[in-house]
Design a protein around this nucleic acid. Structure first.
Lengths: 340, 340
DNA sequence: CTGTTAGCGCGTTCAG
DNA sequence: CTGAACGCGCTAACAG
C-alpha cells in the first residue's frame, strides 16, 4: 500500500480518468473489468488507481446498479453460541464470495426483526438470511423481490429457500434413546413458540412415545415462554410435582438451566435423573458426568444458508431449495437407566 | 403495515411528491424532518409515504451526505465466545442509536482485516470498531479521517479511542493468587503476538513474580503461535519437562486446551496442578472442579466501544478517550496449594 | 476500442 | 414556507 498524502477528498473515477487522460467511463470499464479497454490503457489506469489509493464508492455503485454486495442477516440472539456459530458460517461464506453482512441481533423482538428488514430494503441488499421470529419480515422482503433464506426454522408464508435440521428426527432419537433405557416418565423442556424448530422437537418427542406405545403425559411437557425469567423455577416445580426420571431439554439454554437446577438439588446424573439436550456446545462434554445431546452442524448450517442465498442472487428464478440436515445423537454419561 | 400491491419499482420521494402534489424537495424536508414544511403538508406527505410503504434509499442518501449509518466492525474470531459477546454489545448499542454494523470476522488473517477496512471506506461508514491484528487497517482508516475505536487491545500507531481491560493487573492478581498459595513454578500460556492484551498479561505475570521476589523461569513461559495446531502437544511437553505446579492460561481458548490436557492425563485439580484462566466463560464454573479465572466485562466492552464511537461521530475533534476497565479475580476450586 | 450523455434517489442550495 | 436546479460517483446505452 503506497503511502498517500492526506487525501482531502476521496479519490474518484474522474480523478483517475483525468490523470490518465481518458474519460471516466473508460476508467470505470478498466477498473470494474466489464467492457472493452485496450490493454495498455487498462494497465495505466490500474497503476494510477493503485497509486492514488482509489476506493470505489459503494453507494454510487449501488445507486446505479440498484443492488449492493451487502447481505442482511438477522439472528435471534448473538450472545447464544448457536447463533454466533451460525453467523460465523454465514460471514465466512459470504466474504469468500466478495459479499459482506450487516448483522442484526433481534433479541426476541419481532419489532427489531421487521425494522431490520426495512433497513435491508433501504440498503438495497441483494438478499437476506433470517432466523425468523415472525413471518412479517420475510413477507416484506419477498414482496420487494428480495431473496430470503430462512435458517434453523421455517416460518415464511411465501415459499423461500431454507436450511434446517430434521428436528423431529433428532428429538425422536433422543426420546427413543431414553425410552430404550427404560424411562417412562420423560419430561420435555421446550420453548413455547410456533417455530418449526420447537414444534419439530415436540413432535419427535411425541412420535417416539407413540412408536414405543408409551402414552405422553402432558404434565411432563413444560412450555417455557421465550424470554421467561422463571425457567429454573418451572423446572424445579416439574421435578417436585411430576417426578420425571429423565429430562429432554430441547435447546442449549434449556439444557443449561436444567443442569443448574439438577446440580443445585444435588441430584445424580443419571442415577436420579437422566438428562439429554439438543444442540451440542462444548460444556456438555466437559462437565461430569458429561451430558448427552443431539448435535447439529451449526456453522455448516450458516455456510449452507449463505451458499443458497448466493445461488439465488445469481439465478433468482431457480427452483426453491430446502436443505434438511441430519442431526445426530451423542450419547454421553448423563443418560442411563432410570432409578430402581 | 398496509398491504401494498406488488411494487414493480421501489417507491421514491418523487412518487410521494407527485401523489401529494408537492415537489420532491418538500417531500424530502417533510420526511427527513429537516427544514420548514407546513404542518398540513407534512401530515399529508407522511400519510402518503406510509400508505405507499416508502423506504428511503440509503445509497442515495449516503452518496449525497457522504456518510452512512452503517458502522464497520472487525473482530478476530466470531466463533470465539469472547468476540461474539463483544459483537453483541456493539450491535445492541449501535442499533439503539439507529446505526447498524457490517461485521467482518478476520479469523487471524491481517489481510482480511485490511480488506475489511477498504470495504468500510467504500461503504462510507461513519466509523469503525476493531479488535486490531495489525496497525495497517487503523492507519488506512484514520488517514481517510474515519474514526476508529480499538477494543480489547491497542495497536494503532496513530492515536484513537479504545476500550481495554487492565490486562497487567488481571494477570498480576491471578499470578499473585497462585504465588500466595505457595506456588513457585507457575507456567504461563500466552499467545505469541504483539498485542497489548497478551503483552499486558505477560507483563502482569512477571510483575507479580518480581513483587514476590520469585524469579521467572523463562522455560515456564509457553508462547503459542496464533493459529497453532500443536498447542496441546506443547502444553503436554511443558508438563513433562518443566513440571509446573500451576498453569496460568492467558485466554479462554488456552484455558480450554490446558483443561483438556490435564484431564486426559488424569491430573487432579488442584491436587496435582492448579489452573487459572483469563476471561470468564460459562463452562469454567460448570466443570468440576470449577476453574478459577480473571473475569472481564465482555459485552460491556462492546457497548462502551460503540458508545465511544458514536460520541466521536458526533464530535469528531473531541479529546481522545481510552477506557480501561478493571477485570476481577474469580477464585474457584482449581487453584489451591501446590502438592507436598 | 473510446467518449458523451444521462440518470440512479436524495438533500441542499438558492430564489421566490 | 415551497419549488427549481444541481450534483454526489458511478455505470449503461449509445454514438463514433
Amino acid at each position: 500500500m503506497p503511502d498517500q498524502p492526506l487525501p482531502v477528498r476521496p479519490v474518484t473515477l474522474a480523478d483517475i480518468a483525468r490523470e490518465a487522460g481518458t474519460s471516466a467511463s473508460t476508467a470505470s470499464r478498466a477498473l470494474s473489468g466489464r467492457g472493452y479497454v485496450s490493454d495498455n490503457v487498462r494497465g495505466r489506469l490500474l497503476e494510477i488507481a493503485d497509486r492514488l489509493g482509489y476506493v470505489p464508492n459503494a453507494s454510487a455503485r449501488t445507486l446505479k446498479q440498484r443492488t449492493s454486495r451487502v447481505v442482511g442477516v438477522v439472528v435471534t440472539d448473538l450472545e447464544n453460541q448457536f447463533y454466533a456459530g451460525l453467523s460465523a458460517g454465514i460471514e465466512e461464506t459470504l466474504r469468500a464470495s466478495g459479499y459482506h453482512m450487516v448483522l442484526v441481533s433481534a433479541n426476541g423482538s419481532s419489532g427489531e426483526e421487521a425494522a431490520g428488514a426495512r433497513t435491508f430494503l433501504a440498503l438495497g441488499t441483494p438478499g437476506v438470511i433470517l432466523t425468523p421470529a415472525t413471518r412479517d419480515a420475510a413477507a416484506l422482503l419477498l414482496r420487494h423481490r428480495i431473496p430470503v433464506v430462512e435458517v434453523d426454522r421455517q416460518l415464511a408464508g411465501d415459499p423461500c429457500d431454507a436450511v434446517v435440521v430434521d428436528n423431529a428426527r433428532g428429538a425422536r432419537d433422543a426420546t427413543a434413546h431414553l425410552l430404550q433405557l427404560g424411562h417412562r416418565r420423560i419430561a420435555l423442556l421446550v420453548v413455547d413458540t410456533e417455530w418449526t424448530s420447537d414444534a419439530g422437537r415436540l413432535h419427535g418427542y411425541v412420535e417416539a412415545h407413540d412408536a414405543a406405545g408409551v402414552p405422553v403425559d402432558e404434565h411432563l411437557v413444560v412450555r417455557v415462554s421465550p424470554g421467561a425469567q422463571d425457567t429454573e423455577a418451572r423446572i424445579g416445580a416439574l421435578l417436585d410435582v411430576e417426578a420425571p426420571t429423565a429430562i429432554f431439554a430441547a435447546n442449549n439454554q434449556l439444557a443449561e438451566h436444567a443442569w443448574h437446577v439438577l446440580r443445585r438439588r444435588g441430584l445424580q446424573l443419571p442415577g436420579d435423573v437422566s438428562l439429554i439436550g439438543f444442540d451440542d456446545v462444548p460444556w456438555l462434554e466437559m462437565v461430569s458426568p458429561s451430558i448427552s445431546t443431539v448435535a447439529q452442524p451449526t456453522v455448516e448450517m450458516g455456510r449452507r444458508a449463505a451458499r443458497l442465498l448466493l445461488r439465488r442472487i445469481e439465478r433468482p428464478v431457480s427452483e426453491r431449495v430446502v436443505e434438511v440436515l441430519q442431526p445426530w445423537l451423542v450419547p454421553r454419561a448423563s443418560s442411563g437407566p432410570p432409578p430402581n
